[in-house]
Each structure stands twice: as C-alpha cells, then as structure tokens.
Nucleic acid binder design. Structure first.
Lengths: 235, 235
DNA sequence: AATGAGTATTATGTATGACATAATAAAATT
DNA sequence: AATTTTATTATGTCATACATAATACTCATT
C-alpha cells in the first residue's frame, strides 16, 4: 500500500461533528420522503427527541439547511421546504473584498466565457420586443471616439439585457452577482490597463447580428467586442 | 406619495433578526480591518461581550460566515479567516433531488454555454501535454456507429479535461458540481430523448482543432458536437 | 540540550432550561 | 357575521454548565 492509499485510508475516519450528521440526516429525510415545496418539517423539539440530540444541534443543522435555501423558518409555523436558490447563497460570499485575487480573475473570465457562449440561447429565445429594447439602449450609446470612456451603467444595461434574454434566470442571477466583482476588477489594478483602445465590434453591431445574423456571427462579434478584456487577461 | 413609494417606505423597516445584524457586523469587521487569510478573529465569548449579545447569537452568525467560507473554526485555536470557496458552498445545495426542474434545466444550459464559450481560454492555456492527454482519452473512444451508447465516463473524462485546461479552477469546480445534475437530467425524462442520433463533430475532431485550429473553429465544432443536447433543449 | 510522556489550559462543541416574540388559532364580544 | 381579545405554539434569544479536542506547558529521561 502506497502513501496515498494510506492517506486516503486515514481520511476515512469519521471526523464529522454531531451537527454534520444531523444535517446529512435531514437532507436525507427531504430526499426520502419526497417532500414537496411548501410541506413543513417536524418542529425542532420533535426532531431533537427523535434524533436523540439537543435542540442546539438541531438548530445549527436547520440553520445550515436554511442557508442552503432548502427550508425557510417561520415562527409558530415551523420550517417549510423551499426550492433552493443556488446563487442566492453564493452571492452572500460574493464580496470582492473578501475574495482573493486569483478567484476574482477567474470570475472575470467566466463572465467572458458566458457571454460568448450564450449565443444560441439568445437566438432561440429573443423576441421582437427584446430587439426593440436593445435598440433603445444602444441609441444612447456615446460616439465611437469616446468609447474608451466606458460608461459603466451603459455597459451593464446592455449586457444585463442579454442575460435576461437568455431566459436563464440562474445565469441572470449569476450576472447580477458578478456586477460588483466586475466593477472591482475593472477599477483595481488587478488587470493591466488596456493599452490599445481600438474600436471593436460595437453594441450596435451586436444588435444588428441578433436581428439578422446567426449564432456563429454573434459569438465572433462578441468575442471581438470583448477583445479589450481578453487582451488585459492575456497581457 | 403614491402607493409604491409608501410600500417601499414600509419595506424599509428593519425586519432583520439579531443574528442578521451580528452577521453583517462581523462581515464588516473583516472588510474594515482588512484582515488577511490566516488571521484569527476574537473568541466567541469576547465577541459576545463586545457586541452585547449572547454567545448563541454569535455562534449562529459565525456559523453563517463559516458556511460562506469566510472563516474556519478550530477548537482551541478559534476562528481564522479563509478565502471563500464560492462553489464549495453552492455545491452543498446542488443536489438534483432537491432542485426543481426549471433550475435543473437552466444548469444544464449553463454547461453548454460554458463549453462553447471557453474556446479562447483553452487556446491560450493549452500545453503539448494537455493535447497528448486528450489524444489518449479519445483513443479509447468507441466507434462512431455506437456513439449513441454514450459512454458517460468517457464523456466526463473528455469534457472534464477541457475544464481543467482552462486553468480556471472556479469553472472546474463548477463542472464537478454539475456532474450529478447533468447525469440526472440526462437520465430523467426532463428533456426529450434525442430522436435523431446523427453523428456530429467528434471528440477526436475537437482535439484536432485544438491542436491546429482556431478558437472560432473550436466554438463552432463544440456547438456542433453538442447539437444533440441543444436539440433536446429546444425540442 | 533534545526528546517525549504526561498534565493543564483553552476555545469550540453540545446539552439543558428558561423566557421573549411573533404568528396563528380559539374564544369572546359587538 | 365580523371584529377584537385572549390563549397557544414554535421559533428566537439568553444563560449556564459540562464535554471534547487541540494546544501549551511541565518535567522526567536520555
């Protein structure tokens, strides 16, 4: 047996706390009983008795479930099952000031990846109204020569609308959550300032592609549009 | 004052619990003091005294920070600051059985978006060794005629390696987290079974593109490779 | 002086009991 | 019947005590 196997062996000792076990127990309960959203789970005291632990432990475990978005606790009513909001949880710790720089850079990258890859969703779900809205947004776009002024609200309005069009609310939430990070990374010295301020594919052109083009054209257009950001990433 | 304004006014009443406030307080503390990873924060009792609340409340607030990945608690040593693992948190609630179907479908979509959009990262960071590994993986690929058997381990090995090549550990974690969901969605009746099992761009061809092609070619190739999945999404 | 066994200390983990609070249900009043 | 008042109930908060595990310390041994 080599060292790794040995280590893995040791790793298998149960180092979990009581709360850990109760938490796993409760999650299992939800799965097993196939409880639906809105159903209520037993009271803290009942759980404490039936699991043979103190209410303190139960409360900590329930708190975890609550943070995972699995339940919601109301006074008197007890706890009821809810459908977890994946990104709601994550957004709580999505605080630029507490994330290390590597993570921030990675999140920044993910944003670029998403916006390039979302083309097919956009084309499949976009409506005439969406296009009209996009046109409204870009109609107030500052002239090309001043593009480097980089109106951040304008950017958010445009790109945010794109996320919305995807019809993917998880992704939309992800973007909302990303905003402060994006802002932070952009203003911090984390990435090199863009040296060349060439004009790339504009928002207007992207809208034109959405109206009359193909997903493939959009991906390329968006890739080009984001060139400054990529350049900063890759030096 | 109209009704909306009035409502917003009412909404502004502080409905947060004690723990909420303490939590916000602690997060603020971390930001303010610019505490670095590894620094330790005051003991529970000290916090309780200085904030004027019971240790119970402090413990609940600390538990939340712990779940956010902001701190880690060790016996005797107290709590120390850690760099939050964004997706570690989310993965806890990433349990297919507790997520509703819409969310599952959305997550499935995000996976597709990521893999198409990651092209530029791949090309910028891929190494000769990576290409060799990919070739090894696809060398055991089942023949085209049996493609619809859809060897899931093989799929995971190949696509997982791609995530790895991006060098973006957050994205890689995201993928790891997605696996059970992907598996679940694939096997459940959530999406229609693919009706046509045409052969699209294969893993081998994708590797060839990575070796000698361009990001643009890769995006199109991947889009085509994922055609069956898209078809199931869009009917 | 270095090592190691054994002990003391300390901060978190768990248990228990009590009361506060808010939401609901039940009862009483009009 | 509708509304107000009261009672009930389950979560939220507090206080205290003890268990446990990790660390620091002591001291004997070499």
């Amino acid at each position: 047996m080599n060292l790794t196997a040995l280590k893995n062996n040791f790793k298998s000792v149960d180092t979990s706390s009581l709360v850990d076990k109760v938490e796993a127990n409760l999650v299992e309960l939800l799965k097993e009983k196939k409880l639906k959203v809105g159903d209520s789970i037993p009271k803290e005291i009942e759980l404490a008795e039936s699991l043979g632990v103190s209410r303190t432990v139960i409360r900590e475990a329930l708190l975890r479930l609550r943070m995972m978005g699995l339940i919601e606790s109301k006074k008197k009513k007890g706890a009821v099952i809810t459908s977890p909001d994946l990104f709601g949880i994550m957004s709580k710790s999505m605080n630029p000031h507490v994330l290390d720089q590597d993570t921030l850079k990675e999140i920044f990258e993910i944003r670029l990846v998403l916006e390039i890859g979302m083309a097919d969703l956009l084309f499949y779900r976009i409506t005439k109204e969406d296009i009209k809205e996009l046109k409204d947004i870009v109609s107030t776009e500052p002239p090309a020569t001043q593009f480097h002024l980089f109106n951040i609200e304008h950017e958010i309005a445009f790109h945010g609308k794109l996320y919305e069009i995807t019809g993917n609310s998880a992704m939309k939430k992800f973007q909302k959550m990303l905003l402060p990070v994006f802002d932070y990374v952009h203003h911090s010295g984390l990435l090199k300032k863009q040296p060349l301020l060439k004009m790339f594919v504009s928002h207007k052109e992207l809208v034109a592609i959405l109206e009359n083009g193909t997903p493939e054209q959009f991906r390329n257009g968006m890739r080009n549009h984001l060139e400054n950001h990529f350049a900063r990433l890759f030096d």
